[in-house]
Design a protein around this nucleic acid. Structure first.
Length: 453
RNA sequence: GUGAUUGUAGCUCAGCUGGUUAGAGCGCUGGUUUGUGGAUCCAGAGGCCGCCGGUUCGAACCCGGUCUUUCACCCCA
């Protein structure tokens, strides 16, 4: 007999966990729908050609590949084997598990471009898979909840993303968090302004670590990546800048005055905030973080990341605007913006902060118990009456001692137990015990329904 | 992919520098109670000490490999 086990980085979800996950997922889904997003689903597996090359070399390594069916080795030559794994791979695997929901969505949009009405707002809640090393808040199978709009560059979408994030967090009673926002164009502008045009990629990667490793280390890394001393000196005042929103914007206007792109980024950001104020909304939880850089190569405008304070868990949500995501699939000029909630991390955060409402392990309200066959038959008749009255009712399915039946109700957290014995059968009623208070009274079925519901 | 780390009863963990039949608490089963759960008391069941190999008279303990857990790096939700 073999010991059962799970693949690394995957988990089962028991009834309690599922109740909590559903609570989070319903909140998110409800919010997406409130803002006019429509749900779609795409297959767990995609053609490898759809997935590869979209996430960089690192990302390609993290893709789970699916072995071809049948004799998967039949096309592999000894030459391929000598050339190494890359050569063998495309002969033995042509499908892979999706790595995120954005790329499959882009594929979907391109394939259905003639049927879709643009701007198209969709949401998608499905698992994704990454062959990462698991660690805290990082799994190999996890859910993403994506909402994206494609076919518009209207900044109202950015503003609405902020509103959706705030609504979800409010519903989940999370209030100590910040929505970090920045604009990729500002980062491009910065690299131009410090005389390192076109190097915003490495600049972002290094600067993103500022919080973690400090300015000195970031400087080292940038030097390593070929940034001149002069450039770093120009960058320094920006890194040191501590100011409020208007202060930051004022500073950037000056700092980026030679960069058309950079100024455009600042303007987009300001307009987004302006839209919020026209909606009668404030800027609570919004943190304009000039140093926020998200690695994903396809972002071109706004970038978001949500961090809950005082927990050791990475960002729980992130996203941004991409101007040409569908380009690689042959449809260019479609601008989109979207973001994603990581349910598994939200779950971890809420658990760490003890924010889940106390719930019983079951939704059952009433358990019918009995002593013998006649009581069982009588209880079967009552069962239907309670259920027809809309009360979640169950009956203990096999004859067992009454203690055992009570114990069952107790462990499952069922709040009421209905006892069906000789007395009850004679009077046509049921004795209902409140498991919390211990009170028990003999009632008619109608009275019992009123008490329990 | 790199570097650490963990694994003993269903759960949380003890187990001395290698030495007889591997322990505790909680949980579980039964009883105390033949119409009543949560408390008390009594009794009992339950372990290839992650897996494979090596060293040794002798391994839960030492060594190698492997899987798993957790963590840092990389990257990311």
């Amino acid at each position: 007999m073999q010991k059962p086990s799970l693949p690394k980085g995957t988990r089962d979800f028991g009834p309690l966990q599922m109740a909590r996950r559903t609570y989070i997922l319903d909140t998110i889904k409800d919010t997406f729908q409130l803002f006019g997003y429509q749900q779609i689903e795409t297959p767990a597996m995609e053609n490898l050609s759809t997935l590869t090359g979209k996430y960089g070399d690192e990302g390609d390594q993290l893709l789970f590949k699916i072995l071809n069916s049948g004799d998967f080795i039949k096309d592999v030559s000894t030459l391929d084997l000598e050339k190494g794994s890359a050569s063998v791979l495309n002969k033995v695997s042509e499908k892979g598990l999706r790595y995120d929901l954005t790329v499959p969505f882009a594929r979907y949009v391109v394939m259905n471009r003639n049927e879709l009405t643009f701007p198209f707002k969709r949401f998608q809640i499905q698992p994704v898979w990454r062959a990462d090393r698991p660690q805290k808040g990082r799994y190999r199978e996890f859910y993403q909840c994506d909402a994206d709009v494609v076919g518009t560059d209207g900044l109202v979408c950015e503003a609405e993303i902020i509103l959706m994030i705030r609504r979800v967090f409010e519903k989940l009673s999370l209030d100590d968090y910040s929505i970090k926002i920045n604009n990729r164009k500002i980062l491009t502008g910065i690299s131009e302004a410090i005389g390192e045009e076109g190097k915003e990629g490495p600049l972002c990667v290094a600067i993103d670590k500022l919080d973690k490793i400090g300015w000195e280390k970031v400087k080292e890394e940038l030097t390593l990546r070929g940034f001149g001393e002069e450039s770093l000196d120009k960058l320094a005042p920006l890194v040191a800048l501590e100011s409020d929103l208007t202060g930051k914007i004022g500073f950037l206007r000056q700092f980026l005055k030679t960069s058309e792109t950079g100024l455009k980024g600042v303007e987009e950001l300001e307009q987004t905030f302006e839209i919020l104020s026209q909606m009668g909304e404030n800027l609570d939880h919004i943190d304009f973080d000039i140093m926020l850089a998200r690695g994903l190569s396809y972002y071109t405008g706004a970038i978001f990341e949500v961090k809950v304070h005082h927990v050791a868990i990475g960002s729980v949500s992130g996203g941004g605007r991409y101007d040409n995501l569908t380009g690689v699939f042959g449809l260019s000029g479609v601008s989109g913006v979207g973001f994603s909630f990581g349910v598994d991390r939200l779950y971890d955060v809420m658990e760490e902060l003890d924010l889940f409402p106390a719930e019983s392990h079951t939704s059952t309200r009433l358990l019918l118990t009995y002593f013998d066959q006649s009581g069982f038959q009588y209880a079967l008749g009552l069962l239907n009456q309670f259920r027809k009255a809309g009360i979640k009712t169950e009956i203990y399915p096999n004859q067992a001692k009454i203690q055992k039946q009570f114990d069952f109700a107790n462990k499952k957290g069922i709040p009421f137990v209905g006892v069906c014995g000789g007395d009850e059968i004679l009077s046509g009623g049921v004795s209902v015990k409140n498991m919390g208070s211990g009170e028990q009274q003999k009632l008619s079925v109608n009275e019992a329904i009123k008490l329990v519901c």
